[in-house]
């Protein structure tokens, strides 16, 4: 049986992020206090780990490098790509309830040739700086999701 291993990818703008800034200003306007709010595109992949080409660390690193260079997921002129979660602030991941990631998977496998990727999903990762975790959850519910088609979870 083929086993898989997970890879998480975080894509952040290195130019000012108007969406994060607007979200922060709106949260201030409706009465929340927060020092900073960051936003990243989040991708999670399950990668075939039984394939000999993918079991060695070097191959995993090669795969990460290739993923970072696909201009579908990130644009090198304005994005920074990371495969490690930074340990600052409160991290909340927002995803669409019924997004199965099939579109993303199809693009990666059929168009870009990443045959070793077995599943893919995406979302938006928000980092709340300078507020309590419970307040970050309140802000998420108030502005950052519509619970009728989105959900969220805290990332540790």
């Amino acid at each position: 049986m083929t086993s898989t291993k997970p890879i998480e990818m975080f894509v952040r703008l290195v130019v000012p992020d108007n969406i994060a800034l607007t979200a922060k200003h709106t949260l201030h306007k409706i009465g929340f206090k927060i020092a900073d709010l960051r936003r990243e595109d989040y991708y999670s992949f399950s990668v075939d780990a039984k394939d000999p080409k993918n079991t060695k660390d070097k191959n995993t690193e090669d795969l990460k490098n290739l993923l970072a260079k696909t201009d579908i997921l990130a644009n090198a002129n304005k994005h920074k790509v990371s495969f490690d979660l930074e340990r600052d602030g409160t991290k909340i991941l927002v995803t669409d309830i019924d997004n199965t990631g099939q579109g993303l998977l199809h693009t990666l496998r059929e168009r870009l040739g990443f045959a070793q990727i077995q599943s893919a999903s995406s979302g938006t990762l928000w980092t709340f700086i300078g507020c309590k975790e419970e307040d970050a959850v309140k802000m998420t519910k108030e502005l950052l999701i519509n619970e009728h088609y989105q959900e969220f979870k805290l990332l540790q």
């Binding site: 969406i19 607007t22 979200a23 519509n146």
Partner: peptide, 14 residues
Amino acid sequence: SYEDRIRAGAIAAK
């Protein structure tokens, strides 16, 4: 409205 930032209608609604 507001470029659909966050999601469509979310900012204007506030």
